[in-house]
Design a protein around this nucleic acid. Structure first.
Length: 485
RNA sequence: GGCGCCGUACCCAAGUGGUAAGGGAGAGGUCUGCAAAACCUUUAUGCAGCGGUUCGAAUCCGCUCGGCGCCUCCA
């Protein structure tokens, strides 16, 4: 089955065919860096990360660009987000940008999100943005008023193609007092003249000022990916007006199609309501990580489709945690068994058709990146492997190697939920593992003498210290308990 | 008001014309000194409700009820 992607532009699933054979240019709207990332960012970037991982898995060379917005988001009162926060904290806006950018990557790293190939900053691409504004003015798609430049939406007849909105809708829908400078209420700023007291401003042919919000994505995506590229992603809430404006200004400037496939991921809700910075009901990733393993959060996110909303609740997260641990137990058991098999001679009678699982997994991912369905496949595989591990038959080294590799590829490399190193027993001869082994030996003796109280005491105390013992047919295994879980 | 989305078991969730994946929780069982883990069995004649199309619908159409999103900064 070929890869099919739901394209917001056409409102249907389409077979994915990159513009250049074997190469994919992909741009995703990154965060505005003025406060810590919340779970919504987590869902968004985990979703796109999984998409990038899968594209790479099926052989594409992907150039993945994700911007950092550190200037240009205007509030209702016309004030820049970065500026507002900088006044609150009494530090330079770019200091905030720097701090939050670090914090953002810290969170994303924990979620197993592979870093973008390029993370361009809006403030570092003022020249490119000015260039586009110049082109738009020259072609008559924009006009200047009092040092500010606006895009003239009536000159671009495709305006509304992405969101399905007409200009009449836009007029009716406009609640904010129309700024008198604009010729049409839907016209949007390309360049704004800085008011006095505005710290972040740059020289331009029109005024000392700063770029409009939408222009940065056009400038940076086209700079690194070309004037037409394959995939543009972002949150559904950015479909209008942000992405609509991007299309308008980019295509007006170049006269070429801007993006082939638009991918929009759905939002996180809390108790059924959208989580957003402005509503103030957001849960930061750092808060969640204090209570749950970040990979549990990733697992939770991937358990629903990227185009579905995900309702964030403690109950749901608890469920995800239990499911995640179940999967990790299987992986751990395979790896434990693998270690034993390496030093033993084994016949091994069980075989398993892994290609069937791989195919079902690929079919799921090929169908618009259906990660939840793909996870179901992994769980079914997990069950079958557990049956094998439970059976009386010895498993061959080959069998164990192949299953471990399969989990590593599907659950690790593609979905990013199975780490290469689990918190299993410490490798090597460190003092901790020696001490635990001594405890296990003492406990074995206690068990032999039916001193159950002693055996249980050792097990309970170790558990309290974060070490879990599990008695098996052929001895006792131990592993570290993930904390936070 | 305009545009759009959603409603699947106790919870999360996939399935968009062929007879309800998967995870959690619950119940029973196997194994075990007991645990833990795992495995097995079980939990929706039914997919918000009512009509319609069809040999056949959770899936298509219409209406009703309920929830949400965008239209204003947001991933």
């Amino acid at each position: 089955m070929a890869l099919n992607i739901y394209n917001t532009l056409t409102r249907q699933k389409e077979e994915f065919k990159p513009i250049h054979e074997g190469i994919v240019g992909m741009y995703v709207c990154g965060p505005t860096v003025y406060s810590d990332s919340h779970v919504g960012h987590g869902k968004s970037y985990v979703s796109f990360d999984t998409i990038v991982r899968y594209l790479r898995h099926i052989g594409y060379r992907v150039l993945y660009i994700q911007n950092i917005t550190d200037v240009g988001h205007l509030l209702d009162d016309g004030e820049d987000r970065m500026l507002k926060q900088s006044k609150i904290e009494k530090i330079h806006p770019l200091q905030i940008a720097e701090n939050i950018t670090r914090s953002y990557f810290e969170d994303m790293d924990k979620l197993g999100v592979v870093r973008p190939d390029i993370s361009p900053r809006a403030s570092g691409h003022i020249t490119e943005q000015i260039e586009i504004v110049k082109r738009l003015l020259a072609k008559g798609f924009a006009y200047e008023v009092n040092g500010s430049v606006y895009f003239d939406v009536r000159k671009f007849n495709k305006y509304g193609i992405l969101s399905g909105r007409t200009l009449d809708d836009a007029v009716e829908g406009t609640r904010v007092e129309t700024r008198s400078e604009k010729r049409h209420p839907a016209d949007f700023a390309l360049w704004k003249k800085a008011e006095s007291g505005h710290i972040m401003h740059w020289p331009s042919p029109w005024s000392e000022g700063f770029p409009g919000w939408h222009i940065e994505c056009s400038a940076m995506s086209m700079k690194y990916l070309g004037e037409t590229f394959d995939i543009h992603g972002g949150g559904m809430d950015n479909q209008f007006p942000h992405h609509e404006c991007e299309i308008a200004q980019s295509e007006a400037a170049t006269g070429k199609p801007f993006v082939k496939y638009w991918i929009h991921n759905n939002l996180v809700t809390v108790n059924g309501k959208k989580m957003s910075k402005s509503l103030g009901n957001f849960v930061t990733l750092k808060d969640v990580f204090a209570r749950y393993n970040p990979l549990v959060v990733r697992f939770f996110i991937l358990q629903s489709h990227y185009r579905s909303t995900l309702d964030f609740s403690d109950e749901a997260l608890q469920g995800a945690k239990a499911g995640y641990e179940k999967l990790m137990t299987t992986v751990r058991n395979i790896r434990e068994e693998l270690k034993k098999a390496e030093t033993e001679k084994r016949a091994g009678g069980i075989s398993l058709d892994l290609s069937l699982y791989r195919k079902r997994f690929s079919d799921a991912m090929d169908d618009d990146f259906n990660a939840p369905l793909a996870m179901g496949v992994i769980f079914e595989l997990s069950r079958e492997i557990n049956q094998a591990l439970n059976s009386e038959q010895e498993l061959s080294l080959d069998f164990l190697k192949l299953t471990d590799a399969c989990f590593g590829e599907l659950g690790g490399k593609i979905l990013g939920i199975i780490p290469e190193q689990l918190p299993v027993r410490a490798e090597g001869e460190n003092i901790e593992s020696q001490l635990i082994d001594i405890h296990i030996k003492v406990r074995q003796q206690a068990k032999k003498e039916k001193a159950w109280w002693a055996a249980d005491l050792i097990r309970n105390e170790l558990e309290a210290a974060g070490i879990r013992l599990e008695d098996k047919k052929d001895g006792t295994n131990w592993h570290r308990i993930n904390r936070p879980e």
